[in-house]
Simulated assay, not measured.
Amino acid sequence: MELRVRDGRAVLAGEDESGEREVDPHSLPLGADLAEALHEWAKVADAVVRTETPADGVANALVARRGKQLAGRIAAVMNSPVLYTDPVSGELVSVEAPDSPAVAGPEPAELVGEEEVAEPTPWGTGLTVSFITASIVTVTVVSLSLGLGETSRWLALVANVLVVGGLAPSVWLGRKVPVWRWVAYGVVAGVLVAWLALILTLLQA
């Protein structure tokens, strides 16, 4: 069985009497939570590929890591190895089933990147990272918008849309990953503050 991304949807490919077939995860006994998680990952992976982010980008690494985690969950449920095709690099990896088969159900915290309940949340360090990230994003977006706005306001608007569109996949994947989630929060806050500042600037003009 092989996990792939096809047109923004997760599919599982396998061989039968008629040859190779690709099926929707919902058609297999994987559990609704796992099937939905697969499709959510596939949508983000497809967006990352379409934006043509650099091969060493954060979004690419998160897509690959999340895909391997989901392939591991499938292997655990099916109790058999699963091949995983990285939608960004095209690399084919075999993910083995764990020693004890897992039961399909709610996604474990360690697989979605959340910290365990017993581990305290590093609010001080995390908020500091978010603040620094938000400051950098705010200054960057405002400077870019004001610079382009002197030429054309429409050009500035298009630039903002492209910047946010490029950041969206990384932010969406990073929202549940320890450490990177604080960066994601900072990016969102920075973009919102920058847009608010631009709106106030336009109203005073």
Rank of each mutant, 00 (worst) to 15 (best):
E115S: 15
L148M: 14
G72S: 07
E96D: 09
E115M: 15
L144H: 08
T133G: 04
V141S: 03
V158S: 13
S145L: 07
T85V: 15
L111G: 05
S89H: 05
E52D: 07
G113S: 10
G72I: 07
N60M: 04
T121Y: 15
E91I: 15
T140Q: 03
L146W: 04
G72C: 05
A118P: 02
Y84V: 01
S152G: 12
L127H: 09
V158K: 10
T121Q: 11
V137I: 12
V63D: 00
L148I: 11
G67R: 04
G105H: 13
T140Y: 02
T53E: 00
S94A: 14
P98W: 07
G72K: 06
V93F: 08
E91G: 11
T125P: 07
N60P: 02
E119W: 14
L83G: 02
A55E: 06
P106Y: 09
D99C: 14
A104G: 13
V93Y: 05
R65C: 06
S152H: 15
A42T: 07
S80P: 08
P87V: 04
L155W: 06
S130Y: 06
A42S: 10
E150G: 12
P120V: 15
I132G: 02
G126A: 09
T140N: 08
D99G: 13
T51Q: 02
P54T: 10
V77Y: 04
G149M: 02
V58E: 00
I132F: 10
P122D: 06
S143N: 15
G67L: 03
L157I: 13
T85C: 14
D46C: 13
V88G: 05
A71T: 05
L146I: 11
E110P: 10
E150I: 15
A76P: 00
P120Q: 05
G105E: 09
V142W: 08
